[in-house]
Design a protein around this nucleic acid. Structure first.
Lengths: 94, 94
DNA sequence: ATTACTTTTGCCTAAAAGTGTCAAGTCACT
DNA sequence: AGTGACTTGACACTTTTAGGCAAAAGTAAT
């Protein structure tokens, strides 16, 4: 999810992997993998990307966190995951 | 959460760490840490515990998954986490 | 207070996961 | 065929995790 998002942002801005990777000070290949979600995207890199693309950092972060939660949730049975999310919700609004 | 739960179950059954650890084939200290959430509890261990304590494995699993989600969520800003959970919810009911 | 036992703590190691590079490869265009 | 953008795979390094072992601390019963 977050990978697709930052790829979309980059393409909208008409930037090359090479250019963005240079700002992040990482290899082009690494950024390519991050956009395709082969490798994880670090939080600090995401924040820098929001800057580069002039995007809402909070929106991106929310997606990034959602991805992490989905990774947990999707590796489990659906029924159980729903139950778990209920528990989480209760636990949070305390 | 899950640690407290399995400790409660063990105490209700009047079993010692030593006894339960033996069934799981792990060290007593390790189980002690799992109950106090110092170390993570593996899924297969949890399933064995449900067996030992004759508890509902699904109920335990839901708590266990909830713990994993909470770990992600609590390491982030509250506002963002709520947003992220919304995204997760949408994503799931597709 | 000593003994006998349970539980906790701290330190250590092996295995796994995460982070990123480099070189070579593919693809599209001219 | 050559160039530029992107992808792939193998590798190296670092960090995290899982768990064991031994010593320390807590708990009862004598």
């Amino acid at each position: 999810m977050i990978g697709a998002k930052i790829r979309e942002l980059r393409e909208t801005k008409g930037l090359l992997l090479r250019q963005v990777a240079a700002v992040l000070e990482i290899d082009t290949a690494t950024l390519s993998k991050m956009e395709r979600e082969v490798k994880k995207l670090r939080k600090d890199h995401l924040q820098k990307l929001a800057d580069i693309y002039q995007a809402d950092v909070n929106e991106l972060l929310a997606i990034w966190i959602a991805d992490k939660i989905l990774k947990v949730v999707k590796s489990e049975d659906n029924e159980l995951s729903s139950k778990a999310l209920e528990i989480v919700k209760e636990h949070i609004l305390v």
